[in-house]
Design a protein around this nucleic acid. Sequence first.
DNA 1: GTGCAAACTTGCTGCTACTGCAAAGTAAGC
DNA 2: GCTTACTTTGCAGTAGCAGCAAGTTTGCAC
Lengths: 187, 187
Amino acid sequence: MQAALRLFAERGYDATTIEDITDAADVAPRTFFHYFASKDEVLFGGQDDRREALIQRFGEEVEHQPVEVALQNALLTIVDAFEDDPGFFLKRAQLYTQWQPLRSAVLRVNEAMVDGLTEVLAKQLGVDPRTELAPRLIATLANGAMRCAIDTWVASGGKADLRALTVRALHVVEPAITAALSSGRPR
Amino acid sequence: MQAALRLFAERGYDATTIEDITDAADVAPRTFFHYFASKDEVLFGGQDDRREALIQRFGEEVEHQPVEVALQNALLTIVDAFEDDPGFFLKRAQLYTQWQPLRSAVLRVNEAMVDGLTEVLAKQLGVDPRTELAPRLIATLANGAMRCAIDTWVASGGKADLRALTVRALHVVEPAITAALSSGRPR
DNA sequence: GTGCAAACTTGCTGCTACTGCAAAGTAAGC
DNA sequence: GCTTACTTTGCAGTAGCAGCAAGTTTGCAC
């Protein structure tokens, strides 16, 4: 991941071959594909596991707390993780604004997040997520708010207060979530 | 596009080569890439032009109408287009729930839509979309609402009333848009 | 220290997506 | 009938990615 990030930044995504990356990381090209399903996922290693853990925790928390609160906690957990290594996330973000395959990867990761949240919310509300709007709508809104906050933070070059932005965005979205909750909860 | 849709449905995305498609469409393989940038975009031909036209019209309408109204009109235009050939859109949707490359293509198309809306909204609100949350947030919310409606329609096998679903979803989201508008408009 | 099993790493072979370049065909206008 | 612009095509090459099978390392029991 480090090698890929560096090389992409140095010479661009297209100009970097798998072999370049594996040479830099001192492994064989074939090994690459045991850890990353494709070239465009190299910057997102381990995401799946972390997301699953997060979703699971969200599933537990939402049983004891109002939906909005549990949701905010979950999303802030993600955002807070950015502070561990802002440089990495910033550089990655700059890369995926430039090269579409990387952008696609982010979008996929994000969608998986929404799917996870949707499932938990549906279970909690006791409705079928395929026929009812509410769960997916709530998940989409909350996740969208977070993404907007992140985008703005990235645009600021990491100078803005990501956590504050996220809280603000979620605050804006909250009335809609409330509306969805009351419309979606079966009587 | 037709050949691709049929073949993907018959034997799957991976199992269909470009050559299969071009054979079925009676053109040379090389010709394929003059019309579609990649295999995964074959089902989305012409999207770019249509989207640009829509965004432009939205830009004009939003000057004479409340944002929410113009936004709803724009999104309903998209959704209404589905009624021209529901079979095509349904089949395509089923395909992209099954194969990730196609799913990625949808996500990209969708994101381009959000970007377009964001730009127009930022201009209308007179703010910088890179430093202010509001424009992107509003675009994301409205677009998200539409997507949820579409997803639900697809899950119903096209039986549900797509337009009604979209209106409902947008209605749920409206309070958040209003909130964003009042928080985002500079004094 | 030895031996076994599981996990990790690698090489090889092959298919296919995709690109650049340049030629061939084709339709439109004069 | 000729020029011009556009579309279609062929060819040759690069690189992503998968399956298979062999080699290597690691963890653990004895």
